[in-house]
Each structure stands twice: as C-alpha cells, then as structure tokens.
Simulated scan of single mutants.
Amino acid sequence: METTMNFHTRKWVKPEDLNPNQSLFGGRLLQWIDEEAALYAIIQLDNPHVVTKFISEINFISAPKQGDIIEIGIMATAFGTTSLTMKCEVRNKLNRQSILTIDKLVFVNLDRDGNPVPHGKSAITYVKDRFPAM
C-alpha cells in the first residue's frame, strides 16, 4: 500500500467559508474532503459510481482563518471486495500545520443500478500507468 500521503487539492479559505468565529466552517471542510475522497475512489476504482459508506472520527486540530491556503491529502489504506478504505489529512499549505485528520473513509463501488459490485482492484494504480506511453 502507498506509504506517503499525496496532497493534490488546495483550497483558499474565503469569507463565504467562515463560521461565526471567523475560522473555516467545519461543514465546508468536510464537504471538500468528501468530494476529494470521492474523486480519489473514482480514479482508483475506475468507476464513476461510488458512494460514501463510512467516515470515522474526525479530529479537528487547528482552525484555518480567512486567506489561509489548505491542502487535502488522501491515501488508500485497504481494498475490500466492493470497497476502498482511505485516510485523510488536511494541513496548511504554507507552514505544514496539521488542521484535521480522519483515520478511515470507506467508499463502496456500485453498478449503474446503485448496487454494491466487486471492483477487482487490490493495489493503488496511477492513470499515467493505465495508458501506453506515446
């Protein structure tokens, strides 16, 4: 399994993302994480039909403020028959301060009718490796 977390998505904390305490609203951050994890699952399972099944304890460590640039890291930790388990870390892009961790996010692979279906994957793959070199 992958040993290092990849941080592909960056977000800029804007005024509309703030809570009454003038820090990033947790619900907005969870929305961004769920979207990033879904995209990661879609790419890994090579199927646009995936759903969030489970998110474990969410550990908020620090509160980003307006103007901060954050980055979201997702890493696969296990492949089940129909599922993909990942973990997540969010950190400040500029100073690397940890903002949030989630130990377990589980997504399920679905068929076109919305039923769980085996995905046949057992390891992380990269899009660049799925196509012949040009």
Score class of each variant (00 low, 15 high):
S23T: 15
A41P: 09
T4Q: 12
Y126F: 13
I124V: 15
F25M: 11
M1F: 00
T3Q: 10
F107M: 15
V108D: 06
L18D: 05
M86D: 00
V50P: 01
K128G: 11
L45W: 09
P118N: 12
K104P: 08
K11D: 09
A76D: 06
P116A: 01
A38R: 12
L110A: 07
G80A: 05
T9K: 05
V106P: 03
L29W: 13
K87Q: 13
L105P: 03
P20V: 04
L39A: 01
G114K: 05
H49R: 09
A37S: 10
A41F: 01
Q66D: 06
K121F: 05
P118E: 11
D103F: 00
K93Q: 07
K53L: 09
P132L: 07
G26V: 11
T9Y: 01
L100F: 00
I72F: 00
N95H: 11
K53P: 02
K14Y: 03
N115H: 09
S83C: 00
S98K: 12
H8G: 04
Q22H: 08
A133V: 11
E57W: 03
T125R: 06
G73T: 02
T81S: 00
R96H: 15
P118K: 11
H119S: 14
P118W: 13
K93L: 11
I61Y: 04
D103R: 10
K93P: 03
D46Q: 15
I61G: 07
K53A: 13
P15G: 04
W32T: 05
A123F: 08
A123K: 07
Y40Q: 03
P64N: 01
W32D: 13
I42T: 03
Y126H: 11
G26L: 09
